[in-house]
Design a protein around this nucleic acid. Sequence first.
DNA 1: GTATATGCAAACCATTTGCATCAGT
DNA 2: ACTGATGCAAATGGTTTGCATATAC
Lengths: 127, 127
Amino acid sequence: MNQRNTKQKEIILKILDENRIHPTMQEIYDLAKKEDQNIGQATVYRNINKLVEDGMVIKIPSVGEEGYHYDINNHPHTHLVCNSCGKIIDIFENDYEKFIKKIASNNSVIIKKSLLVLEGICNNCKK
Amino acid sequence: MNQRNTKQKEIILKILDENRIHPTMQEIYDLAKKEDQNIGQATVYRNINKLVEDGMVIKIPSVGEEGYHYDINNHPHTHLVCNSCGKIIDIFENDYEKFIKKIASNNSVIIKKSLLVLEGICNNCKK
DNA sequence: GTATATGCAAACCATTTGCATCAGT
DNA sequence: ACTGATGCAAATGGTTTGCATATAC
């Protein structure tokens, strides 16, 4: 089951990589349509789902609402959903991994993956 | 828009409170059916959704897979999805709130809600 | 040339909604 | 009595799937 590099897959990866907007499935489709108006909805779903399975893309649930956003999984970080501007902001916290390890040792469990999503007001909207 | 205490709502709350199993919507429905075989699927959805809106119940997304689990929101805690037994285990970490506050101050943001979900191996399966 | 990926449309299925009825206050 | 909640069934809508075709290798 070898993978192939298709034009569609490249478009989708470019969208996730270039725009730091953490798009939803629908937004990815809309953006992809601008690059190639023949691209199918199903192609976007199939590609994104495979990328998530393979660990190259993270699926971010919303804290309050429904739906998911997607992000390239380049370096581990956290997301803040801003209640004011609606954007999803990347948060890099140095001690995150340390904190997770502490939970693991305190509770005698093994933690393989973790997901931290925040909701509040971003730096920009606070001003 | 006053709330009313119905038999169905009490059954649903009892299920969430008594069983510490973090059930899915479907599981809540199945359990509720055992108490009252006339209860409707829509009633379960409507009640759970309202409880989540009101903040009495938390909706827990899965880290890897699809779907949600529900839990009474009595005191703040984290959840570990065990890859071995499949259960969702409550994790109480004293410094959780402190850690979230630290993120907020480090990044100059206001954090109103947060969600931490873990995936790995629980204490029991590790043995 | 072969097998994987695509596009389209149909199928799927969890969730929501409209409506008449029931029941809590 | 009034109005919110229920149960049923139908509608909805995001996601998946079947299939013939296109295309990467």
